[in-house]
Design a protein around this nucleic acid. Structure first.
Lengths: 207, 207
DNA sequence: GTCTATAACTAGATAGAC
DNA sequence: GTCTATCTAGTTATAGAC
């Protein structure tokens, strides 16, 4: 018996926090097991390798967030019925789940949002293919919805605007508590979601 | 005497390429010296430490790019004379130097653009403070110009829009040759600059 | 399942010959 | 300035006792 209800998920929690603070490469297995107060061998026992632990950390959050995004897209398309869905609603389906996550009360989700922002630049080849697998169905759905909402735009125009939006969101997640000037007022999650939606929507419409 | 006109800058070139491909943490000094065909000790001799080499790699490109941005801002403000400068021109002053760099014929600059995109997520504390020092004057200038161009916006609205624009640009730099679907046509530097400018400008105007 | 001990390796850094 | 040889400390991973 262990001190934790579940050693495996306790390791995931600690790893997630350390990875998101310092980046996966700068955190060693020793750092994690020490902070988690579990044995050095526990990571290899439960996950096989450090690389597999990283994959598990990503997977635990990316899967439900992307599922939430797809569910939100479903809802948007369902309520639009035969009309084309509204651009802002599509963007909200994409943006809300991550920003909401970054303001979650649960420490883990909060930490993860930074990691989410980090994920596209950190990727070792193995993690990169995991992410590709996780994001591809989402991107396809977004693509289809956006083409319906903005029928005058070409597919590649939509692609580039989507890339810009991705970038804005991920950079926001990554730096939402860094590089902030002293005079800036407290950020409010709901306001941030709306700001980013209206920024991106205007960008799409200008294309 | 060495085989290169300058061992120090040859190391910089090779390090830049490897760092931008794999990230600074995943590249060892052994990787660099081997690829550069110089002695293992050369990095410590010329730069002091790996960390100092990383700083030198960043500094060599960030300094002139940010100088070019500030010079472009100067030109924009000069030609606007007493009128407020045009939003698109300000954004172009910020965006063009990096995207142009990523389409440069020189291999080094090309490689670096990816590193530029990476720089905000990679940062060890030491590199982060270097970047902060390098970006702060630029951000201040941008801030001032944007407040003139968009006097109806609050400072914090400009701040968040600027963050979104930063994100879009850096993500573009980081992934301009990754995650591209098969059907996408060849990217053209000038067109990309214009796309991003119009995307961001519309976003600012919507705020 | 958990532990200690350690293997096997790689990292960054340096002393000292040339 | 450049080299080899080596130090020290760190890494991931594993074997085997409990």
């Amino acid at each position: 018996m262990s001190r934790f209800k579940d050693t495996r998920s306790h390791i995931l929690d600690v790893a997630e926090e350390l990875f998101s603070e310092q980046g996966c490469d700068r955190v060693s297995v020793r750092d994690i097991t020490k902070q988690a107060r579990v044995n050095l061998a526990a990571i290899n026992y439960h996950f096989g390798s450090k690389e597999d632990l990283i994959a598990a950390v990503f997977e635990r959050r990316v899967v439900p967030v992307n599922e939430a995004r797809i569910a939100a897209l479903d809802a948007v398309e369902r309520s639009a019925k035969k009309k084309s869905p509204k651009l802002e609603d599509i963007l909200e389906a994409f943006i809300r789940p991550t920003i909401q996550c970054s303001f979650a009360t649960a420490k883990g989700e909060k930490a993860f949002s930074k990691l989410f922002g980090r994920c596209l630049s950190e990727a070792s080849p193995e993690i990169e293919s995991l992410l590709k697998r996780q994001f591809e169905p989402l991107v396809e759905r977004l693509d289809a919805a956006l083409m319906k909402a903005l029928p005058h735009l070409s597919r590649s125009e939509i692609f580039w605007c989507m890339k810009f939006t991705f970038g804005a969101l991920h950079h926001w997640l990554l730096t939402k508590d860094r590089f902030l000037p002293g005079w800036l007022e407290e950020v409010d999650g709901e306001a941030q979601i709306q700001k980013l939606i209206s920024f991106a929507a205007a960008g799409f419409r200008a294309a």
